[in-house]
């Protein structure tokens, strides 16, 4: 029994270096993506992650065209494109009557179109998706260090801007009356979203990066009420999904990145059903109880 469990769960990581790297990489990612996702959910910005992922894509592609498959060039390109879109969209929102979703939508579409045009101008027929889908199985030292740095930086900055950020989630009007920190904190937060997505695109590939940012946080909403606990639960769910996803990918021969996200999806459905905070089963039981 124990031997079977060992073979199932521990052995792959003992035997293979790439499995250990994949595990550490996805853990590190989950640690910072967890809290980030919680803030995105609470601020009703769940779809912003998706938009920003598209805004990053062309920047990384341009980096690839200039410098080849270089981690630093692609990261820098994505960072510049993402932050540019975030800041421009933020500024337009603050200074015009447009809502944030509208300005973000217009800027990320422009950025995406620009990226695709540049790639075709260069006359190269490389598949954008191939370039930009990183693989959790291919994390080298540089990528791991990058992931860890981004994660640490995110958590540090979150700690510093925690109070204004929470206030803006709960009552943005109040924050505006007592402090002028609202705008810079908001822009800083959007930049954190960008670097976490980049981190995710090294580990999972761009499109799946949004999954690791959002799914654990949304699931956490079903388990607890306070922001602090939600961040913790979100991290735990992310880590659980990563570990289970890697093990499933190893034993069942499934593509690793999508498997991790699918496992996060399974955990989301479990939370949706069983979570004490508004889970469907609890709700069903309560209504039955009231009727009785």
């Amino acid at each position: 029994m124990m031997a079977a469990l060992y073979d199932l769960i521990i052995a792959p990581f003992v035997e293979f270096d790439f499995m250990r790297r994949a595990l550490i990489g996805s853990f590190v990612l989950a640690l910072s993506a967890g809290p980030m996702g919680v803030f995105l959910v609470l601020r009703r910005m769940s779809l912003v992650g998706d938009a920003m992922a598209h805004a990053i894509l062309p920047g990384a592609a341009i980096g690839y065209l200039i410098a080849g498959l270089s981690l630093s060039a692609m990261t820098l390109g994505g960072l510049i494109a993402g932050c540019l879109v975030a800041i421009l969209a933020g500024l337009v929102t603050r200074h015009t009557q447009l809502r944030e979703d509208a300005s973000l939508a217009s800027f990320y579409i422009i950025s995406l179109a620009l990226g695709v045009t540049l790639v075709s101008l260069k006359g190269s027929n490389i598949d954008l998706l191939h370039v930009l889908f990183g693989s959790v199985l291919a994390l080298d030292d540089a990528a791991l260090i990058l992931l860890a740095s981004i994660s640490s930086f995110t958590i540090l900055v979150l700690a510093v801007i925690y109070r204004p950020l929470v206030l803006e989630c709960v009552d943005p009007g109040f924050l505006r009356t007592i402090s002028s920190m609202g705008a810079p904190v908001h822009l800083l937060f959007l930049c954190l979203v960008v670097i976490n997505l980049i981190s995710g695109f090294h580990a999972m590939g761009t499109l799946l990066a949004v999954g690791v940012l959002m799914l654990p946080a949304i699931s956490a909403r079903f388990w607890c009420q306070s922001i602090g606990t939600m961040m913790g639960v979100s991290c735990v769910i992310g880590i659980l999904a990563s570990a289970l996803g890697l093990i499933a990918s190893y034993h069942l021969g499934l593509a690793s990145g999508p498997t991790i996200i699918l496992l996060a999806g399974v955990l989301y459905f479990l939370s949706l059903l069983l979570g004490p905070q508004g889970g469907l089963l609890w709700r069903l039981r309560r209504s039955v109880h009231l009727e009785g």
Partner: peptide
């Protein structure tokens, strides 16, 4: 053709 799985990589190694 498809995205690599952990199983494939482990087998090759």
């Amino acid at each position: 053709d498809a995205e690599a799985t952990a199983q494939d990589v482990a087998k090759i190694i």
